[in-house]
Computed example of a mutant assay.
Amino acid sequence: MEEIDKEMLKVQEDLVKVANAKKDYTDLANRVEDLRNEKEKILLNVAKEKNEQSRLMELEEFLDNQELKIESYDEELVRKLVEKIVIYEENLKEVFKSGLEVEIEN
């Protein structure tokens, strides 16, 4: 990300020089916009990864506080762990809140 910031600063400086010289600065303005968009995508990915890590830590903490042996269906456990179950003709897909997906063949 630091590299993008440095490149964006340099391109912005070049943009100011070209604009002050009353030359066409369209390409430089487009490059600045591209760099801003790239930086925004990186920041969104970082936030998404932090959110996923946080959910995994919550899940791990929850599991650590559970009994080691599950002997019957536990509604609370299912609601804490499972986001959704998708049913297909040939298999099931279980999507956990952590983002993990497991396919179960019939």
Rank of each mutant, 00 (worst) to 15 (best):
M1L: 03
M1A: 09
M1C: 06
E2N: 05
E2V: 05
E3G: 06
E3M: 05
E3K: 13
D5K: 02
D5E: 05
D5W: 03
V11Y: 00
V11W: 01
Q12G: 02
Q12D: 07
E13I: 12
L15C: 01
L15S: 01
K17R: 14
K17D: 13
V18R: 07
A19Q: 14
N20E: 15
A21N: 09
Y25D: 07
D27T: 11
D27E: 13
L28N: 01
A29Y: 00
A29C: 08
N30I: 04
V32P: 00
E33V: 01
K39A: 15
K41G: 14
L43W: 02
L43Y: 00
L44Y: 06
V46E: 09
V46D: 06
V46M: 10
E49K: 03
K50N: 07
N51L: 12
E52G: 02
R55C: 03
R55N: 05
L56H: 07
E61K: 12
L63P: 08
D64I: 06
N65M: 12
E75M: 06
E76C: 02
L77P: 00
R79C: 05
K80I: 01
K84P: 00
K84H: 10
K84L: 15
I87V: 12
E89D: 15
K93H: 14
E94C: 10
E94K: 03
E94V: 08
F96L: 13
F96G: 09
K97Q: 10
K97Y: 01
S98A: 12
G99V: 11
L100T: 11
E101D: 06
V102E: 12
N106W: 05
